[in-house]
Computed example of a mutant assay.
Amino acid sequence: MQHVPYVGSGPYCYANSFAMMFGDQAPSTAVIEFATGSPFGMQLIGGSLPFFDPYGWDPEAGFEGALEALGWTSETSHGEDAEDALSRLRSALRDGPVWVGPVEMGHLRHQPGMTGPIEADHYVVVLALDEERVLMHDPQGYPYASLPIGDFMAAWQAKTLTYGAPFTMRTGFRRVAELPEVDMIRAAIPAAIHWLQMTTDRPMPPASFGNGEAARLLADRLDGGCGKGLRAHLIHFAVRVGARRTADAATCLARAGYREAALVADEQARLIGALQYPLVVRNDRAAAETLRRLAPTYDRLLSALRNR
């Protein structure tokens, strides 16, 4: 079956936020996401929390390499003091929009149903700030969203997130190399190989696993039934973003001439996407079988990228 690139909604908050900061010089969000390394692996953190992204990876781990591959640079600042952070934000906004995150999504009360921390990370582009409210483009689907400063600062402190420093923002976005998108993709291939190899010095909780082993262990867990929290995490976030990432990886790899790797990434996208329905209708054994079919694809993708 022919690979068809995906275009549509989905939880691509930092890729969309970067694209907004790049303006009319932005590459596609598929290329931005590819450059972060996110499609290249799977992890099961602490034996219980699955993500379809590399072992030891989080968004902050991929940003600097992504910007370099894309031909961009920016300046990052963060700190513990809320008053200083707000002052830095006001000052930076004089030069234009500011990229902010990670933030705790549960404090973004302009999103329906958000009433407090849910331990979910997010990224936004802040446009303006007055004495009472913050104006932002929230790539979750809320352009020109307005939020009271107190709620925004609680979100920006990122106190309930497992990665990132409080009050982090990026400014001074500058294009340092004019590259065709295909060259951006090729520049990101070494990072893809690195992440698939699961070689990381980033600390991981005990009983954390990656790639095929992560897929098999999650399948074993689903055989015993999927708990409410795990199911919600999978069907509302992890499967959706995982399928899109790998679909975008297949598109990018094909564009750059990595035909065999593109075929494997497309297979991964189809398998991850196929998890959504059985998990929603609680056919956990079917989802477990799909995960077992996914497990060997990570070694195959690594081999295809290495041996091209």
Rank of each mutant, 00 (worst) to 15 (best):
Q2T: 06
P5A: 12
M20R: 03
M20W: 07
F22K: 03
Q25D: 15
P27I: 06
I32G: 00
E33V: 11
F34Y: 06
A35F: 08
T36L: 14
P39N: 01
M42Q: 08
Q43K: 04
L44F: 07
L44T: 02
I45N: 03
S48N: 10
L49M: 13
P50C: 12
P54F: 15
P59N: 05
E60K: 03
A61N: 12
A61S: 11
F63V: 12
G65I: 15
G71R: 08
S74D: 11
S74W: 14
G79A: 00
E80N: 07
E80C: 05
E80R: 06
D81V: 05
D81E: 13
A85L: 12
S87N: 04
L89H: 11
R90V: 06
A92C: 09
L93G: 00
R94D: 14
G96K: 07
W99C: 00
P102M: 05
P102W: 01
E104M: 02
M105D: 04
G106D: 01
H107F: 14
Q111V: 15
P112R: 07
D121Y: 15
L127C: 12
D130T: 00
R133K: 10
L135C: 01
M136C: 06
H137A: 09
H137E: 13
P139V: 05
Q140K: 12
P143S: 10
P143T: 14
A145P: 08
A145C: 10
S146I: 10
L147N: 03
L147P: 04
I149G: 01
I149P: 00
M153D: 00
A155W: 03
W156Q: 00
Q157K: 12
T160N: 07
T162W: 13
G164D: 03
P166I: 07
F167P: 03
T168N: 07
M169G: 02
R175N: 13
E178I: 13
E181M: 10
E181Y: 10
M184D: 01
R186V: 08
R186L: 11
A187L: 12
I189M: 04
I189N: 00
A191Q: 04
A191M: 05
A192V: 08
H194V: 07
Q197W: 09
Q197H: 09
Q197L: 10
R202K: 09
P205K: 02
A207R: 10
F209P: 02
F209Q: 02
F209N: 01
N211R: 02
G212C: 13
A214I: 05
R216P: 04
L218K: 06
D220A: 01
L222Q: 04
G224F: 10
C226H: 02
G229K: 06
L230K: 06
L234M: 14
A238P: 02
V239T: 01
R240G: 03
R244C: 09
R244F: 09
R245Q: 09
A250G: 09
A256N: 06
G257E: 15
Y258G: 04
A262R: 02
L263F: 08
A265N: 06
E267L: 09
L271K: 09
G273T: 02
G273P: 01
A274C: 09
R282S: 00
E289K: 05
E289D: 14
L291G: 00
R292I: 07
R292V: 07
R293K: 11
L302P: 05
N307S: 12
